[in-house]
Write a protein that binds this DNA or RNA. Structure first.
Lengths: 170, 170
DNA sequence: ATTTAACCAACTATAACACTTGGTTTTTTC
DNA sequence: GAAAAAACCAAGTGTTATAGTTGGTTAAAT
């Protein structure tokens, strides 16, 4: 169980999905703007999440992503595992071959810790997170910011599109 | 609290020190051979450990490092913190300024987890580790391997020294 | 037909880690 | 007092994963 911003991005994006479950599919464009993550990077993360059966995407206008399982069934640990696919930690990476094929001095310590972290993150589901008051608070703030953002931005993009011929993907 | 092989190296080395507390100072050369860590990298790690008051070094022949505090007083968390000096995790790195100066969606989740990990590692001291049977087992194996190693290696190094004019530092 | 959005592949930049090189200084030992 | 052993120090290099970019193709709705 590795911990990196990659996993954090994935959890944040999945939480965004869970929060907007009622409103149909959510586009990555949306998430990219709200959570300030590069769109293409999100695409790469969602390819893995989809491969692991955590989300399903629908193409075309009105399309986007939605959870493939209920929010109760998706744990934070599952999300991180899906995205990180055990880029194992050089030595002590699971097997006990850290020291010439044998266990290194601190082998048990790290496996114990890994288990501890896993248990913690496996005990927290998207459903749990959605119902946390702090999360709801931040989510509402983002909702408002996004509206003022997109209403202003959309027209700018359309105009500059005609002038420069380029569309910015972020 | 970041988790990387860097911290693992540091804990392993410190544990080696704790295990050999009775026999006076331990040289980094020794640790490098036994734990298979590059000597110069160890030097860098020990510079930080020394700076954080966890070890003290004595120079010259017969010198080396020993613990600056009792094994009971040194927690694994303290070692990792000393060596990692909070290369903070891009966003959500302690302060709540992950989203335009405000908290991001999953801020609490990561701070909770960090605290959990810290508590776990802070509850384990070098003294605890030294007394674990698996650790003692591995330590004994290393003791034997080192003896056959050094008695064989020392003469080889001396001989090849005179022939090639080079000394390998590892 | 056009637009929207998922889907896909290959490339680039950056940063941290792990390690190397080549020293100096201090202390012990002969 | 010379030589050796060790800590101490600074500046580099190689590698790897992350994070992001570029430039597409396909599927579905208006």
């Amino acid at each position: 169980m590795r911990l990196t911003t990659k996993g954090r991005y994935a959890v944040t994006a999945m939480l965004d999905l869970a929060l907007n479950q009622g409103k149909g599919a959510v586009t990555l464009q949306d998430i990219a703007l709200k959570q300030e993550i590069s769109l293409s990077y999100l695409e790469q993360l969602f390819a893995k999440l989809r491969g692991n059966g955590l989300v399903k995407g629908t193409r075309g206008p009105g399309g986007g992503y939605r959870l493939a399982q209920s929010a109760e069934a998706i744990s934070v640990a599952a999300i991180i595992t899906a995205v990180d696919e055990k880029a194992d930690m050089t030595r002590c990476g699971g097997e006990a071959n850290c020291q010439d094929g044998k266990k290194c001095l601190t082998h048990e310590l790290w496996t114990d810790l890994s288990l501890e972290i896993y248990k913690f993150l496996d005990g927290i589901t998207l459903f749990n997170l959605v119902n946390r008051p702090e999360v709801r608070e931040v989510a509402e703030r983002q909702e408002i910011e996004q509206q003022s953002h997109s209403s202003g931005l959309q027209s700018i993009v359309v105009e500059s599109d005609q002038l420069t011929g380029t569309t910015n993907r972020y």
